[in-house]
Design a protein around this nucleic acid. Structure first.
Lengths: 236, 236
DNA sequence: GCGAAGCTTCGACGCGGGTCGAAGTCGATC
DNA sequence: GATCGACTTCGACCCGCGTCGAAGCTTCGC
């Protein structure tokens, strides 16, 4: 990959180098592990990504240099976290473009397609279904490419112990996040986070260990029907 | 880059391969040329990207396979276009992440920072300034991470010969597009396109040949003051 | 039809970089 | 301060792929 010496006329932010960092299966595996928003020690991250510590270490260096992840020293361990929601967003955006035209089915992917976390909010069939249910009840209004939450939604979130303050935060109240599996937006932003927390705390969904997939529980099935009038999309 | 054989647990859309396509300076240069939304013959594209026809051809193959560009045969030429606005969006998103922490100044980049096209709408200092002016006059309301155009804006656009129908289109009326240079959103979507067209048709801005940069004309300076009450951000 | 133009394919070259084991470093623990 | 554990650095290996010139193919123009 001989670098060109002439001045890059455009795209002065070096997209090429950033893409090069993302163009390795092991590094994507590591980022994928980190997409659950938790911090991992380097060794753990290496094991989850199926590489040796030495390999993980060299990859880590590049991820840090690209400012995709941040590292904090904790005792003799070094904990790695995703640098922020923007990173998760870009990865999800890339996934949207990367999804093959004729979707090759993978049983493993089916779980992810049905329900998963996207950094800190719900995605997949379930995420989209929830968004549609909220719009149907008038708790959420679609505006442009975003969503405007109605007062009833704030009330509902507060009643489920996850109140969302309206003002005073840098992060947007609600955002629309494009789904790679559904190709349709779901709710992100602070509202999206709160919704996901209600689902997880209420044990409406359970994390499938080792992946970002979520399993809809029986309890969750009932809750969705009673609370949101939502027909369960797919038995999963 | 030895591919791992084990089933990729997550990220089933193959982000790695897509990123690999974007991880080459020549291909980014080609995409960058195409970001102006026009179609280019392969030879022209090769010249603008400073590679031989043979090299461009092999890159083109990969870009087509990744469905980032589309090709239409025209006589003995083959015309290349960006596959769609989503591609431009992802590139702009990547650029946001790729922008270096201590912005290294480049005189060439300064033009781009001030004003440029982003696929089909205005970006850069000017794009952001226009967005803020529209919000100030109440012609645009910020909602979540998008914008809601007010009736006055539709009237203004129609008066300048670029009416925007409210309904009946798959593309969103207005979108918010994050600016890599300003790190602040500007207006995209059908409204964003119409605004850019008013600016270009009215010769308020002129394209700088060979790049996506825009130059603010004297006429544009006057128009911005009179029509939008906008103080010119920077003499450029 | 014949030549030329536009583009792709082929072949050869060279370089960047992903991989792991082993050795080295640093901090924690007793 | 000796030992263990977590992590990084080093060295060696090898493979993928970007690059261009030349040759081949198709389409246009006269």
């Amino acid at each position: 990959m001989p670098r060109r010496t002439q001045p890059r006329s455009i795209q002065d932010p070096d997209v090429t180098s950033l893409a090069a960092v993302l163009a390795d299966a092991s590094r994507i595996a590591m980022l994928d592990v980190l997409l659950d928003r938790k911090a991992y020690a380097v060794g753990m991250l290496a094991r989850r990504s199926r590489v040796t510590a030495a390999t993980a270490s060299s990859h880590l260096r590049r991820l840090v240099d690209a400012r995709l992840v941040v590292v904090t020293a904790v005792g003799r361990e070094r904990h790695v976290r995703l640098a922020g929601p923007e990173v998760a967003e870009v990865l999800e955006r890339l996934a949207v473009l990367a999804v093959p035209p004729r979707p090759r089915l993978s049983s493993r992917a089916a779980e992810l397609r049905f329900a998963r976390t996207c950094y800190d909010h719900l995605a997949g069939t379930l995420g989209v279904a929830v968004r549609m249910a909220l719009v149907d009840r008038g708790w959420l209004h679609a505006t442009g490419d975003s969503f405007e939450p109605a007062p009833a939604l704030f009330t509902w979130l507060a009643a489920h112990h996850h109140p969302v303050p309206i003002e005073g935060h840098r992060r947007p109240l609600s955002r629309s996040c494009l789904d790679w599996s559904e190709r349709v937006p779901h709710v992100a932003g602070r509202i999206g986070t709160a919704i996901a927390e209600v689902f997880l705390d209420g044990a409406w969904v359970a994390r499938v260990r080792g992946t970002r997939a979520l399993r809809l529980t029986a309890r969750g099935r009932r809750a969705l029907t009673h609370e949101l009038g939502l027909r369960i999309p797919i038995p999963a």
